[in-house]
Simulated assay, not measured.
Amino acid sequence: MSTVIEQPVEARLVAAAPRMPTIPATLRYDRRDPFAVRMSFPGPATLEGVEVCWTFSRELLTAGLDAPEGYGDVRVRPYAYDRTVLEFRAPEGTAVVHVRSGEIRQFLQATNDLVPTGLEHLQHDLDQGLAELLRDAG
């Protein structure tokens, strides 16, 4: 069984102009980091021209489908019918994208099939982690 789930999604960038361009994005989940999801945007879709990846909690993405969530650099909230807004805040500015809620739900279901919510802690190999810490300390 694969330990990584990647799902392309269609994101619509909310800009000052009335037109909302579609940009490709990818949602990614890795069971080795079971509490986190990543959303990446390819270089051509970013101001810097390099791929940008945001990491935030799976719990935040799940909760943000139904009610506004997040107080830091990433915020998620429902918007209209079958849309979810993701806000990414950085010193350079804020990017706001709309993603179909159905696409996010499909992604989250796949992550839950891989690592059920509430059982993330079982993915960590404490013996291996302790061995790595002791090796690095020596």
Rank of each mutant, 00 (worst) to 15 (best):
C53G: 13
V99Q: 01
R100P: 09
V9F: 07
L60F: 01
Q128K: 13
P44V: 00
A36C: 10
I23R: 11
Q106F: 10
A80P: 07
F107S: 09
Q109S: 05
Y71H: 12
V99P: 02
A36Y: 01
R83F: 15
D30T: 05
M39W: 00
S2Q: 14
R75L: 15
P78S: 05
F107I: 03
P21D: 11
R31S: 14
R105Y: 11
H124L: 15
V74P: 06
D33M: 07
V4K: 09
R105T: 08
S40P: 04
F88S: 12
D30S: 04
D30M: 03
V85W: 10
D136R: 15
F88Y: 10
L133I: 11
P18G: 04
L108A: 13
E51S: 04
D66R: 09
L27A: 02
T55N: 12
A131Q: 13
G93N: 08
V115F: 08
F41W: 00
Q123R: 14
A15C: 12
R58P: 05
R32E: 09
Q128I: 08
E59K: 12
P78V: 10
R58Q: 09
M1S: 15
S2V: 02
P8I: 03
T111I: 12
R75N: 06
F35C: 00
D30C: 01
L27G: 12
G138M: 08
R135P: 00
V52S: 10
V14C: 10
V37D: 01
L122D: 14
A67D: 12
T26P: 06
R19M: 08
E51W: 00
G93F: 02
I23P: 05
A137K: 14
V99F: 04
G49A: 04
A63W: 03
D82S: 05
Q128Y: 09
V97F: 02
R28D: 07
G102F: 09
G64H: 08
E87H: 02
G64P: 02
V9E: 06
R32M: 03
L60Q: 15
T62Y: 08
G43T: 00
F56N: 01
S57E: 00
W54I: 04
F41T: 01
P21R: 07
Q7A: 09
Y79W: 13
A95V: 06
E48A: 15
P42E: 02
A137M: 13
F41V: 01
V4E: 08
R28F: 02
A80N: 10
T62A: 15
T26Q: 11
R77K: 14
R77T: 09
A45R: 06
A17K: 06
R77I: 04
L122V: 09
P8F: 03
L122Y: 01
G138V: 09
E120Y: 00
Q128N: 12
L65K: 10
L122K: 07
M1A: 14
G129Q: 13
Q128W: 05
R89M: 14
A90I: 01
F56S: 01
A16S: 13
E103L: 08
G93Q: 06
A11Q: 00
V76G: 07
E120T: 06
Y29F: 15
Q123F: 00
E6L: 07
